[in-house]
Computed example of a mutant assay.
Amino acid sequence: MASDGAFTPSWLRGKSVTPVPAGGQVDAALARRIEAGCRAVGAPYLIAAELGDGPGASPGTTSRVSVSTAGTHIRPPFVLCTPGLQGAVLFPRSGYALIAGSTAFMASAVGEGTDTARAHFGRYARALSDRHPSLSVVAAEYGPVHRAWTHPDDVAPTSAAARQVALLDAFADGTCGAPDFAHGWWEARRASQAQGERVQGPLGALFDQVFMLLEDYAVDPEFAEPGDLDDAGLKAAARAALDAFRHSESGRSRK
């Protein structure tokens, strides 16, 4: 920790961080995030360090706590970290906590993506600005890195979301097979979430459709279940979704 009680820049290098809403103690929602992150990096327990005066402990007291922290009644100011420092949760005061860590830790602890979590926290801070103005300061410091993309033309060309768009185009046009499309899409989706990219509106709806289609598709036919899509069925459904999307986009451009 830095002298001001924040994460040190050297530890944050190569990691991401986001604020999340929190009450007066580690509640169920925050506990689920912590547990998911710990499982992702194989952390068997957490180290809890008190950052200030607290009931029953002197400043600097550390202890080992269970990964499942929902029932431990941990109250701020505290920091929780994995033994290997792959992830940490800084709980400086009631109202919010900062979750930070490696790609693997954050992908599970903040499954919606870092930027989405930051955007959500911004809305939370605005809603409580009259009673808790300090939350707005935190939200301003940790604003989304990427703006939310609504249409393909908005998407940064080097992003993982752009890779998803390219894969869908290639699959629908017949230059990419179903197994390669499925593998590539899931890989790009994981990368997009890990990088905190956000899609919304029409493009977000299209991505959601493709996600649902791939949920009903087995790359290996041996693992297919009754009702699952085969290669041809996946291609037909994906092409129909993309055609409908392109039609709506062309209507938008004529307005």
Rank of each mutant, 00 (worst) to 15 (best):
V165Q: 07
A139Y: 02
L213P: 00
Q193H: 12
H132T: 10
K235I: 06
A140F: 01
Y45T: 01
T116K: 03
A125R: 03
R33H: 12
V110P: 05
T62R: 07
D115N: 10
G52A: 15
T175F: 14
R252M: 12
C81M: 08
W149D: 10
G24L: 14
A162F: 03
C81G: 01
L98S: 08
F245S: 00
T61N: 03
F121R: 06
D154T: 11
L46I: 04
T114C: 09
G71R: 13
R64C: 01
H183Y: 15
A236R: 11
A2V: 07
S108W: 09
A160E: 02
G14S: 14
P59K: 12
L167I: 04
S16T: 14
T150D: 05
F211S: 07
V199N: 01
Q86V: 04
A182S: 15
L229K: 04
R64S: 01
Q209C: 03
F78P: 00
L85T: 03
L135Y: 12
L90N: 02
P59H: 08
D180S: 15
D153T: 13
A43M: 11
L98Y: 05
V67H: 02
A240T: 13
D216W: 02
R93I: 13
S10G: 08
T158Q: 07
A188S: 14
A70C: 10
S159A: 02
F121I: 09
S3A: 13
A104V: 09
A40E: 14
E187M: 09
G24D: 15
S108E: 15
H120P: 00
V219P: 03
V145H: 05
R13N: 13
G201I: 02
L30M: 05
A172M: 07
S58I: 06
T114G: 05
A240M: 08
D230V: 14
A104D: 12
S63G: 06
L80P: 01
V67Y: 00
C81F: 02
A29G: 06
C81S: 10
P59T: 09
P76I: 06
T69D: 02
L242Y: 06
A139C: 07
G84I: 00
G14E: 12
M1F: 11
R239Y: 08
L128N: 12
P92K: 11
V65N: 10
V65W: 07
A28F: 10
G251K: 14
G84F: 09
G60A: 05
G101A: 13
R123M: 00
G143I: 00
F245P: 01
A127P: 01
G143Y: 04
A109E: 06
F91H: 07
R32C: 03
G56N: 10
L128P: 00
L46M: 06
P226Y: 09
E141L: 12
A161G: 01
F223Q: 10
G54L: 06
A178D: 11
E187S: 15
L206R: 02
D4F: 04
P179K: 13
D231N: 15
G56Y: 04
V89P: 04
L213Q: 06
R123G: 07
Y45C: 08
L46C: 02
T103L: 09
D4Y: 06
P152Y: 09
A182M: 11
